[in-house]
Design a protein around this nucleic acid. Structure first.
Lengths: 205, 205, 205, 205
DNA sequence: TATGAATGAGTATTCATTCAT
DNA sequence: GATGAATGAATACTCATTCAT
C-alpha cells in the first residue's frame, strides 16, 4: 500500500488547513455546508480543495477517517489496561464526548459493517475490532455482563453519539445519561435501590 | 360560513395521499427530499401540495404532528394502567418501533423544550407531560429507579429513536438493545450475573 | 351588435363587484396583482371571475374600457362649452388626475392607434376623436397655438399620465407641472418674464 | 491582496456581454424579463450572471447606474457652457433620446429623492445636483423662466422619458413634443402667435 | 500549481387557468 | 351558476463540480 508520493510541503500545509477548517464549518453548519464556504473560511481557492479531495464526500470522509483513527489509537492504548472495566467505559465516554462537539462522526459507527465507503471500510473494521477487544476484556473481568454482544453495543454507542451530536449533551446531562446506559451494560439490576437514598453515581468507570 | 369548513372530498383524499407519500419519501431520502419528488410519487401536481401545505416545513410539521399526536394518545391510554412499570417500558418500546420505520419523529423529542415551531410547541409539551406521568408512576411502583429525571430519560429515548431510524434496528437487535437500556433504567446492578448462565431476557415489560 | 343576452341580476351584481374591487387592487398592487387576490378581496370565487372575464387581460381591459368611457362622456360634455380653451385644459387636467389615483389608464392613450386590443379599438378612436374636437375648438378660439397637432398632444397627455401614475403627483406638484405644459401649448413665449416678479399662475384653464 | 482586484479578462468580457444583452432584453420585454432569458440571449450560463450580480435587482441597478453615470458626465461637460440655455435644453433632449431607445432609465429620475436603493442613492443625488446647476444657469441667463423649480422640472423630464420609452417617440414626434415643453419652460406665452404664420420651430436649443 | 470563473442540474415557490363538485 | 381544488409552466436563486488563466 504505497501512500502515493509524499505531498509537497505547501500542499500538505493546505491539506491540513482545509481539514481543520472543514471540521469547524461542518460542526457549525452541518452537512449542508457548502464547499465555497469552506474554501472561504480556509482562505484557499475552491479548486485547491478539489485538488486534494475529488469530491465533497471525499472531504467529509477524510475528516471522519482522521477522527476515527485518533479514536482507534486511543482505544489501542486502553486495550491492555490493567483495569479493563474502567478502560471500556472510559472509551465509550470518550467517543460520545467527541460526537458532542464534532458532528458527523457517527456515520462511521452507524454504518459499521454495512455499506461503508472504500476509504472507511478497513478503518471501520479496525474500530470494531478494538472495541470488541475492550468489551471482551471487560466482560472477562466481570465488569460488563457476559451476554452483551457487539451489535447491541454498537447500537448503544451510535445512539449515544447521534443524540449527543444533535442534542448538544452538555454536562451534567451527558454523565447522567451515560450512567443509565452503563448500569444497563453492567447487568440486570435486582430492582431499583429500595431506599434510593444515595445521590447519583457517575458512570463509575 | 364556518371558519374552517370541512375539506372537499377530493381535497381530503389528496391531503391524505400527500401525507402518506411524503412520509415514505422522507423515510427514504431524509429531510433533503424534494417537493417535486414527493409530488411525483403521490401522483399529484406540485401546486396541489402547496395548496394544502404552504411550505415544505409545514408539510414536515404536519407529518410529525400527526405521528406525535398518535403516540400521545397511546401514552394516555397507558397512563392509568394497573402495571405502571409495564406501561412505561411498553411506551418506550412503541416510540422506538415507530422511529424505526418512520423517520423524523425524532425532532419532536430532541427539540423538546427548545425552539419548537408554533404548531408543535403545545403538542410537544403534551408529549413531555404524559411521558413524565408514565415515569413517575413507574417510579412509584418501584419499577424504575427513583433518581432518573426527565432530561436523561428524554435523552435516552431520542438516542434510541435516532439510532433506530438511522440504523434500521430490526429484531432481534431492537429488543436486545432496549433490554440494556431498560436494565439501566431499573437500577444499578449488583455486578454482572456471576454465572451469566441464563440466556437473555427481553425488555421485561 | 346585439349585446348578447342581458345578464342575470346576480351575475350583474358580481360583475360590478369584481370590477370595482379589481380597480382598487390594481391601483394598490399594480399589474402584478394576482387573480386570486382579486377574488379574495371581492369575496367571490375564483372561477366566478373567469366566467365573466375569460382572461386576466380581459379583466384589465374591461376596467380600462369603463374608465375611458367615463372620460369620453365627460369630454363630450365639454365639447360644446362656450369656453373652448377652458374646456380643453380642464379635460387634460381631468385625465391626469384620473391617472394619478387609478393606474393603468395610460395604456389606452399610449397605444392609441397602435396595437389596441379588439375591445378597445373602437373606444380608443372615440377618445381620440373627442380630444381632437376639444383641441380644434380651443385652437379656433385662439387659446391653443395653431400648430399643435394630435400626435404631440397625445404624447404630452400620456407623458403626464405615466409620470403622474408612477410618481404620485400630488398637489401642488401636479398643478405646477401642468402649468408649464399648458404654457407651452398656448404658444411660444416671448422670453421668460423679465422681472419674473409675479408668482406662479395655475394652469389658467 | 487588493480589496477589489480587477476582474479577470474573461470575467470582464462576460460582465459586459451580460450588461449589453440585459439592456436589450429589458428594452424588449420590460422589467418582467426573466434571468434565464437574459442568460440564453447572452449565451452564458445562468449562474454566470449570478456570480456578477447577486440578484436580479442588482443587475438592473448596474445597468441603470452605468447609464445614469454617462448622462451625469455629459451633463457636467455642459455645465459650464457659455450658452446655458442651449446647454440646458440640449441635456433635456439627450436624456429623452436615451430613454427612447433604452428602457428603465426612468426609475433613476422618478425615484429621485425617494427610496432609492443603496447603489443609486449617491448617483441619483449627483444627477439631481447637476441638473439643478444647468437649470439655475439657464435661468440666470434668462433662458428659462425664473419660477420653475426642481420638482416640476424632474416631473416633466421623467414624464417625457416614460412616454418616450413606452411610445417609441421617433422623429419628428420627439422634437415636436419637446418643443411644446420647452416653450412652456421658457415662460408664459402672450397668447398663441396670432398669425401662426410661421412653421414650427424645433426645440430652439 | 493554485485560483476563481463558468456551468447545468436542481430547489422552493407562485400564478393564470381549467375542471370536478 | 358558483365554487375552490388541481395543475403545469415559469421564476429567482444555489451548489457541486469542471476548466481556462
Amino acid at each position: 500500500m504505497p501512500e502515493s508520493r509524499p505531498l509537497r510541503a505547501d500542499a500538505r500545509r493546505n491539506r491540513e488547513r482545509i481539514l481543520r477548517t472543514a471540521e469547524i464549518v461542518l460542526a457549525r453548519d452541518g452537512l449542508s455546508a457548502s464547499m465555497r464556504e469552506i474554501a472561504r473560511q480556509a482562505d484557499v481557492g475552491l479548486a485547491t480543495i478539489y485538488r486534494q479531495f475529488p469530491t465533497k464526500e471525499a472531504l467529509y470522509e477524510a475528516i471522519v477517517v482522521a477522527r476515527v483513527r485518533a479514536l482507534v489509537d486511543e482505544a489501542r492504548g486502553l486495550a491492555d489496561s490493567e483495569e479493563p472495566g474502567a478502560a471500556f467505559f472510559r472509551f465509550f465516554t470518550r467517543v460520545v464526548e467527541d460526537a458532542t462537539h464534532k458532528k458527523t462522526l457517527v456515520d462511521a459507527l452507524t454504518d459499521a459493517g454495512v455499506d461503508v465507503k472504500a476509504g472507511m471500510s478497513g478503518l471501520s473494521r479496525e474500530m470494531v475490532a478494538v472495541i470488541e477487544t475492550l468489551l471482551t476484556r471487560a466482560q472477562q473481568a466481570g465488569r460488563v455482563r457476559a451476554d452483551v454482544r457487539m451489535p447491541e453495543l454498537l447500537a448503544l454507542l451510535s445512539a449515544a453519539c447521534l443524540a449527543a451530536e444533535r442534542g448538544r449533551w452538555e454536562e451534567p446531562l451527558r454523565t447522567r445519561t451515560l450512567s443509565v446506559m452503563f448500569d444497563g451494560l453492567r447487568g440486570p439490576s435486582l430492582g431499583p435501590a429500595p431506599g434510593a437514598a444515595g445521590g447519583r453515581r457517575g458512570p463509575t468507570p
